[in-house]
Design a binder for these strands. Structure first.
Lengths: 249, 249
DNA sequence: TTTAGATTATAACGTAACGTGAGAGTCAAT
DNA sequence: ATTGACTCTCACGTTACGTTATAATCTAAA
């Protein structure tokens, strides 16, 4: 059932170069390769490709797609439902554009009047109109949202989580005078990443990196984190940064 | 009623840079500029911009859009109708994609089976799915089509056209030992361009250039043209090439 | 009337997602 | 054994802007 590049390309209607490109950038690496170096795509690879193409159709940049689908908490079913939503959205916009064309045709014949604003209804050239919808699900969730989620948990769960958190913070505080790139530090940061994804289930690598920066930029974070040790926030940001970049390769 | 860049940008939802870019490449040059160099867009400019955005939405490359709308025979009304067609087409494809998502969701739940081909129904990543439809209208019409059009005309019209044609060919033959870039040659080629657009009403600059190349590549042309003077085909190709490039700037 | 803030200009380098060869190795069929 | 269709890896080209950087212009408030 393993397929070679051109077979896949022909099946889905993209170019061989595109598959090469996706492989290069680590977005879609074939499960197997022959000993002569030929790429062999599995059924699973095909399913992933389908997901990628849905995201692409909706205008997501490849990098972001990679982040989303490589996130440990990524859920295919959930993604498909959202794709559905967004495609319906897109159709609504398309309908609007069709209305705009119709109106413009009439306007052109002098049958109706039209404001300039109306002439551009339906167009949407923000780089990605669905970004916001997607953000809510996969990206950039901010402090408030995470805290809100925290509040939804039972008291019992909360203390359990706080304990886990404290363990990781303490471990990181011990290491904070060493290098943030060291194996121990990276292992601890890995634990931190897993912890976040397990409990909030929404952290892509990109968001994780931003989060690290926030630890330094946002006083509320810095203060709380540095309770475990002076300079921990900065150390964590650096370690998280390194971690995210490592994983990205 | 003249608007400055940011006003236009905000109105239609694109960036200022985009307008700059369109100006740079000659796709949309503002009707006026203040003495300090500020761009001032007229109502007409806005309408053109709307057309441009329709083409863009449908995936046309900017260069081609430029060719299409700068063609002397370009007809706004006709373009709008075609836009409508293509947007409806696009919606059909979108509906198909929505079906595909729905099916995939069910498939994922194990409720139905699905072939790989079905999983990619509705996607269309050919650089421009509407190219063909548009070609028929504005681009790349080939010899046969032009000749077919010729046959649709009355006998009277045909002889009239042949006469015009002969005048231009004869003039060009006189000039063919000089430079194809000379003022006289370019004036004659201009006449040729106008002649074609008046009688066949479908020659963009790009097509015009290709047509010139065809005069040399296709024996049927070369022979007929060179009846007016040895080497005329090559001379015309060069002159047409220069003409198209001049106009493009 | 100066002065800050918003907007404009040009210039020029950066980026994303491939396209397009070039040169060389693989593979199945004649 | 040879062709023709694929495959691989560079590596540079392209499109449609994004993104500074630097300098002028304009507008309203102090």
């Amino acid at each position: 059932m393993a397929m070679k590049v051109k077979e896949v390309a022909d099946l889905v209607g993209i170019s061989v170069r595109t598959l090469h490109h996706y492989d290069e950038m680590g977005l879609l690496t074939p499960d197997e390769t022959t000993e002569s170096g030929y790429r062999l795509y599995s059924q699973d690879n095909l399913d992933t490709l389908q997901q990628i193409l849905f995201f692409k159709e909706l205008g997501f940049p490849l990098k972001q797609i990679k982040d989303i689908i490589s996130n440990p908490s990524f859920n295919r079913q959930e993604a498909l439902e959202l794709h559905r939503q967004m495609l319906l959205d897109k159709r609504r916009r398309l309908d609007q554009m069709i209305d705009t064309v119709d109106a413009t045709i009439q306007h052109h014949k002098g049958e109706i009047t039209m404001t300039n604003k109306e002439k551009f209804a339906g167009f949407d050239f923000s780089q990605n109109p669905y970004e916001e919808e997607a953000r809510e699900r996969w990206g950039n969730q901010k402090v408030e949202q995470s805290q809100a989620k925290l509040k939804n948990k039972s008291q019992e769960e909360q203390t359990k989580m706080m304990n886990e958190m404290n363990v990781i913070y303490t471990r990181l505080a011990e290491l904070r005078h060493g290098s943030p790139a060291s194996e121990e530090a990276q292992a601890a940061i890995q634990a931190w990443y897993d912890y976040l994804n397990n409990n909030f289930s929404n952290y892509s690598l990109e968001v994780f990196k931003n989060l690290g920066q926030m630890y330094v930029d946002d006083e509320r974070f810095t203060k709380n984190i540095d309770k475990f040790g002076e300079g921990l926030a900065v150390f964590m940001r650096d370690a998280m940064n390194i971690f995210a970049n490592q994983q990205n390769k």
